[in-house]
């Protein structure tokens, strides 16, 4: 178990290193120059050169890369080109909101997907099954910004039931604060849930259909268990194993989706930060944000694996051997 975990963490770190390097390289091969974005017409040539030197952009690429890595090892993510704030401070401000958004979306999508997936499997080849399939196909193929803008217009502008942006209303405290945060969270979460649940539902349906023919489900019925109870205790419980396991894969697409959702709903998370930083060619912020997202995806991937081990007793033994 410990050895497995160690190996998993080492692989994660290697992946992270590759992600860092790729981010660094991709940013440098972009055709535009970050200094040109910061320049304003009153600046002299000397000012511009000083600015370039200040951010180390005059050095060769290899030196920049080495300095970047060295700083990373010391835990320094750099200073934002645009706001002159440390990147770590910017990230620390935004991360909790991204976490809140993504975890709510993932949890709700899992719950909704498991529920609809088991319902579809139980009534396979009925109208309900077809309806769930249709909704899943729609949800899985919809583009986050289109759905987001539609909801924003409908519920934020046309019928202004929900706030159109931000994370909370300033000055609200106590229980009202929690309710206010939830109201702000509702639309971006809904969009992410709507595009994520189909993955869970289809996995749950397929796994459960297989389990419906399993001998142990027949044993459960032969004990005198109600069909619905047998299905949850011995069917859904077992089908959860492969279903939960795809969370690790879904996290990647979810964090991509959350960049779009945060941007549309002006939700100040890491995704929105990335969107802003791209406009300003703010290398340090982009590097820091991608690094953070990659780290989170890798970390949650490891957590998913651990969860998988908890759910699946046969693996536990294999790892101990």
């Amino acid at each position: 178990m410990a050895r497995y975990l160690l190996r998993r963490v080492l692989w994660g770190m290697l992946t992270l290193f590759l992600a860092v390097t790729l981010t660094f390289l991709i940013l440098r091969v972009m055709p535009s120059d970050p200094v040109s974005v910061m320049v304003d017409s009153r600046m002299t040539r000397g000012d511009i050169e000083a600015l370039t030197r200040e951010f180390g952009l005059d050095m060769p690429l290899t030196t920049q890369y080495a300095r970047y890595l060295a700083n990373l090892c010391r835990g320094q993510l750099g200073i934002s080109f645009a706001t002159r704030q440390p990147v770590s401070v910017l990230l620390a401000e935004r991360l909790p909101w991204t976490f809140l958004l993504n975890l709510s979306a993932l949890t709700l999508a899992l719950a909704l997907g498991v529920w609809l997936g088991q319902a579809a499997a139980k009534r396979r080849d009925t109208w309900l099954d077809w309806l769930i399939h249709l909704l899943a196909a729609l949800g899985g193929s919809i583009f986050v910004p289109s759905l987001g803008l539609a909801l924003l217009y409908l519920l934020g502008v046309k019928f202004p039931l929900l706030p159109i942006g931000g994370t909370h209303t300033p000055g609200v405290v106590g229980l009202a604060y929690a309710a206010d945060v939830a109201r702000h969270l509702l639309l971006p979460t809904a969009v992410l849930v709507l595009v994520t649940w189909p993955h869970y539902a289809l996995h749950m349906r397929a796994s459960l259909l297989e389990i419906l023919r399993a001998d142990y489900l027949r044993t459960a019925r032969s004990k005198g268990m109600r069909e619905s109870r047998a299905l949850w205790r011995h069917g859904v419980r077992n089908a959860l194993i492969p279903t939960v396991n795809i969370s690790g894969l879904l996290l990647g697409s979810l964090s991509g989706g959350s960049i779009l959702a945060e941007t549309i709903f002006s939700y100040p998370g890491v995704g929105r930060l990335i969107y802003e930083a791209v406009g300003r060619l703010d290398y340090p912020v982009l590097q820091g944000a991608f690094l953070t997202l990659a780290a989170i995806v890798i970390l949650l991937g490891i957590l998913t694996d651990l969860l998988y081990i908890c759910l699946e007793p046969r693996i536990r033994l294999g790892a101990e051997r």
Binding site: A214, D215, Y216, R218, T219, A220, S222, K223, G224, M225, H234, R237, N238, I241, L311, E312, P313, R314
Partner: peptide, 18 residues
């Protein structure tokens, strides 16, 4: 399961693995 019970042919798969 109370008055009438059944045992199956396949002991390897008749118990829930989890």
């Amino acid at each position: 399961g109370k008055e009438l019970a059944m045992i199956f042919q396949e002991p390897m798969t008749s118990l829930n693995p989890v």
